[in-house]
Amino acid sequence: MSHVAIVVFPGSNCEYDAANAVESLGATFEFVWHTSADLSKFDAVILPGGFAHGDYLRPGAIARFSPVMSAVQEYAASGRPVLGICNGFQVLTEAGLLPGALQKNRGLTFLCQPSTVRVVSNRSVLTRTTAVGEELSIPINHFSGSYTCDDDTLSALVANDQIVLRYTANPNGSRDDIAGVCNSAGNVVGLMPHPERATSALLGSEDGRALLASFIGLSLPQAA
């Protein structure tokens, strides 16, 4: 049984979606308040979407100093799986756990729509059971989702196979169509699309299930 920590900051709002997705895959979860300092008992850690600390200053800028982030740093350094979804991705970049940064979307519009992403690398914990080139329909829901980094960082991402997912039709101006990246070890992943909102055909897509099953280290249960 995989036991997943879902970190909740003041202003997180996708924690129940993440919890529902994790449970539907056969894992258990606990919400972990941002003042907690110990994640050692968990098999995986998710930083869900939302507006941590109101997104004041910049998305993730203040969340990065929440006490739980020291525990996330330690947890990530031990090689265990950490996933940042949307605002969680922004928090991980601000914390320096993932390279680059997320900027306001090109066009300055809040985007809430389906997106298609292609698996670029299956070296990461999020994609290890998927095939490179596989296309997945996963919704996006963000204002600051345009991935950016300098030339050297981009070259390093490509050289180290750290680009996890790319959009097939770039919705937000992300550099090199990047939708998700991982750290060099592959155990820390961040992505702007919401796989936890793509877990039921009834709601438009269940393509997120493969990603989350890979992440929590369980095989995908047969659809009921």
Partner: peptide, 14 residues
């Protein structure tokens, strides 16, 4: 401010 070379959609829109 954004570093030179970093796209600034807000500035461009203004």
């Amino acid at each position: 401010s954004l570093r030179p070379g970093i796209a600034d959609p807000e500035g461009a829109t203004i």
